[in-house]
Design a protein around this nucleic acid. Structure first.
Lengths: 117, 117
DNA sequence: CTGATAGTTAAGCATTAACTTAAGTATAGA
DNA sequence: TCTATACTTAAGTTAATGCTTAACTATCAG
């Protein structure tokens, strides 16, 4: 009924493939052409282009063609969005643990003894 | 030939599904039973159990059964691993941009004029 | 013991993903 | 202009995903 794919779906999905992570890793060191991206990969150029399509659809990578070469570069904003989602959950969890710790300290101030009061 | 799934594959893959992100989000607020996880989700318990399977396989969630209820909790370490991968790529990219900026400043120290010297 | 609760497991099914091969289309350079 | 380069696009194949239904197995409570 609702066919909209949240940005995070696409970003995490894109990052879940090792080939695509290698591509992102390469692009983090600077822009590259499609052939350059393909060079270290054990698959056809065609397949690489398709991976690139996934990366672009996710917003993690942009590219532009000039002459016959397409130059790709990373889009750090999309990367940040994914990073932040994780960071927020983890922060939430850590905060909860801290609160729990404080509560335990309060109800049972003894340093290291007695299972039950 | 190599059938090993890197931890990151599994973690990102797990996070790419909105249902599973809702589950993680819930668990970030504290442990929960399978039924509790299922309550807000528009699908059968069976499906939820399968999603939980994916989350556990990825290491993002652990669970233990006591009596007839299975209690699930987040595993922050796995979350951190994914977060760090992204952070490192982004940092790499930012560092590169900084270096590029410095280089440009050096070769063309004029504050805001002249497209070409 | 009996029923309700909490979860498990196995099929089955429709969709999407990750490739491959094959056949194009534009440049760029000699 | 001819040829190699750098992609592009379209099928087609195989496997993995995200569900569902259905049938089962343990608790727990009365």
């Amino acid at each position: 009924m609702l066919n909209y794919q949240a940005p995070l779906d696409l970003a995490f999905q894109a990052l879940s493939d090792p080939t695509r992570r290698i591509m992102v890793e390469r692009l983090a060191r600077g822009p590259a052409s499609v052939s350059e991206l393909a060079r270290p990969l054990a698959m056809t150029l065609s397949a690489v282009v398709q991976h690139l399509g996934v990366l672009e659809a996710s917003g993690l990578v942009r590219s532009q063609k000039v002459g016959r070469v397409r130059t790709c570069r990373i889009e750090p904003k999309a990367l940040t969005a994914a990073e932040r989602w994780i960071a927020e959950r983890r922060a939430n969890w850590d905060r909860r643990l801290d609160a729990l710790g404080a509560y335990l300290d309060e109800t049972e101030p003894q340093p290291k003894s007695r299972r039950k009061s």
